[in-house]
């Protein structure tokens, strides 16, 4: 007769947690943050397999970890959202319900199945103002956290999130938010702790655009992304700057107008080459 070894529930859960954490921390990271015009997703991604995608009109999804596992969850989320929106009304689909469903599913997988999912998920819903945006982090064991304003997932998430939280403001323009996110993602993983520079081909960027009605999810790719990445930050009012400090706010608002134009350009470009 085979010998039955006893393993305490604590030990089993600990092992599963460790397994999931290890898997997640090996992957590249993703960040989600609110800005003045909506919610921004930036993921470090060298492949064409998507980490960031649309769930519903005002709800987006970002994930890190094992692709096949979070892709399953993403599809289930889209199905749930579409089914609810079809049975009731489009306005009745909300991010919290989807976050709950993910938490439920991941919790059940974590406790009942031999192998926990090695994923970390963000469900974001864009509101009418940055304060009304909702970001939910759902981890491999099914716990949900409501993260105000900014969150990072994946390998070295804590370091990235520290860099993000320091500089994040709710009134960032799109360009500022993208550059902040990319800087934070590049702040870890370099040779000897040096920051890395991430190019547009290493990034997957998308927004939930607060000002749109209907489907607000837009990907930012190609020229639009390059110009957002390279745009010089508006000159800070300093004694050495030639511009008088009173012109700084005007410069900033000009910047955000440019961002909107860039977004419009993307829509037009998508018209021709919809992925």
């Amino acid at each position: 007769m085979a010998m039955q070894f006893y393993a305490s529930p604590e030990q089993i859960m600990r092992d599963r947690s460790e397994h999931a954490r290890k898997g997640i921390s090996r992957g590249r990271s993703a960040v989600v943050l609110t800005y003045e015009g909506g919610v921004l997703f930036v993921a470090e991604n060298l492949t064409s397999l998507r980490k960031v995608s649309e769930i519903y009109d005002r709800i987006g999804f970002a994930a890190v970890g094992r692709y096949n596992e979070f892709e399953n969850l993403r599809r289930a989320g889209v199905r749930m959202a579409d089914l609810n929106g079809y049975s009731y009304d489009r306005r009745d689909v909300n991010g919290r319900a989807i976050a709950n469903a993910y938490a439920h599913a991941l919790g059940a997988i974590f406790t009942e199945q031999v192998k926990a999912y090695e994923v970390e998920i963000c469900v974001a819903e864009v509101g009418t103002s940055p304060e009304a945006d909702e970001l939910y982090r759902i981890t491999y064991d099914g716990s949900v956290q409501d993260e105000p304003g900014v969150m990072a997932m994946g390998g070295q998430a804590e370091a990235i999130s520290g860099a993000l939280k320091e500089a994040h403001r709710a009134d960032l323009s799109l360009g500022e938010a993208v550059r902040l996110a990319v800087k934070a993602l590049g702040s870890v993983g370099g040779e000897g702790g040096q920051p890395r520079t991430l190019g547009d081909e290493q990034l997957e960027v998308a927004v939930l655009d607060r000002r749109r009605t209907g489907r607000t999810f837009r990907r930012i790719t190609g020229v639009a992304l390059t110009s957002l990445l390279t745009e010089e930050p508006p000159a800070a009012p300093s004694p050495s700057a030639p511009a008088p400090s009173s012109s700084a706010p005007a410069g900033e608002s000009g910047g955000s107008d440019d961002d909107l134009e860039i977004l419009d350009d993307i829509d037009e470009a998508e018209g021709g080459t919809k992925e």
């Binding site: 089914l83 599913a105 059940a108 997988i109």
Partner: peptide, 15 residues
Amino acid sequence: PAGFDPSRRLPDFFA
């Protein structure tokens, strides 16, 4: 209507 099985089991379309 929620599209998710209220029981503790995972609905099929997850897997």
